[in-house]
Design a protein around this nucleic acid. Structure first.
Lengths: 158, 158
DNA sequence: TATTGTTATACTCTATAACTATA
DNA sequence: TATAGTTATAGAGTATAACAATA
């Protein structure tokens, strides 16, 4: 029921994995496209769960990697995440702005920064990890542990 | 060997699936992150194969769906692809500009456009399908058919 | 009232290219 | 020469919000 004079916010259409009544042609046979559709479904759940904090999947991954590898530099962080230096800098900027991470001059290489979490960042990450784990368990709820192990193995072959 | 006065274009660092020497912490256990890494690897191969034509994975998917469902309207196309109306319009615009698809007024609903491939678009898609199938087979080269069937089933459960 | 398409706007993600400082 | 970080720029992808036309 809409309040007079106020439009309802438009609801996002549900994402059906393979809707009926439409032909997918060759897309049905492409494993890359099956992966893409699964990813869309997972991202939607991620944003519904974690997104309110402004943390996106790439930012979450960066936070975890910085936490696990304190003192890592930006270029290496980018390599590990699969993005270039400029993109890695953008990620670190977005985490540094709210003071979740900080840059320090590297003692051994005056070109490089070392990146590490602040105490606030670590506390925040601890919370985020709980949220993301709940999200991950929810999207994988139809997979038993053996399925998950198998899936992990198969995905590792790309 | 660089020519004097000309810098080499910077090479993109290779994307190792799970590089050694760095700790992934909780990321190692999140199935959503395993999916994300597989997707990064697949996208890189897609762009190396097909990207020169300016066709991206979402545009390719839209082309196939329009081909398979001629006369589909933009809103429905968006629903099927998992994007909203505005994003669906942007995709159709990008395909209509080089005349791969065309909009026609719907005879039954004067609000709606029907979208279909042009002959040029269909010929182009036929070529693209060949390229994308080769790409898909290449990225899945370490998976036997039974693995692929299994993977498809597992991905369908998200 | 609800839906289709459109427009305006904004943000994330990512790349390329060129520059500075160091190595 | 090569590498780390930075800056400027650009483009893809996507969302929200509001509007007009039509259902």
């Amino acid at each position: 029921m809409s309040v007079e004079g106020q439009a309802e916010p438009e609801k996002q259409a549900a994402f059906e994995q393979w809707p009926d009544g439409v032909s997918f042609g060759v897309l049905r046979d492409l494993i890359g496209y099956a992966l893409r559709r699964a990813q869309i479904a997972i991202y939607r759940d991620f944003f519904a769960t974690v997104g309110a904090d402004g943390i996106t999947p790439p930012l979450f991954a960066a936070l975890v990697l910085i936490s696990e590898n304190p003192g890592i530099n930006q270029s290496r962080l980018g390599e590990v995440l699969g993005v270039n230096r400029a993109a890695a800098k953008a990620l670190v900027d977005r985490l540094a702005e709210p003071k979740l991470v900080e840059r320090q001059a590297s003692p051994s290489d005056r070109r490089a920064n070392t990146i590490r979490l602040t105490p606030v960042g670590q506390a925040r990450l601890d919370d985020l990890i709980r949220q993301v784990q709940a999200h991950d368990a929810r999207v994988a709820r139809r997979l038993v542990p053996e399925d998950l192990a198998l899936l992990r193995d198969l995905l590792g072959r790309f």
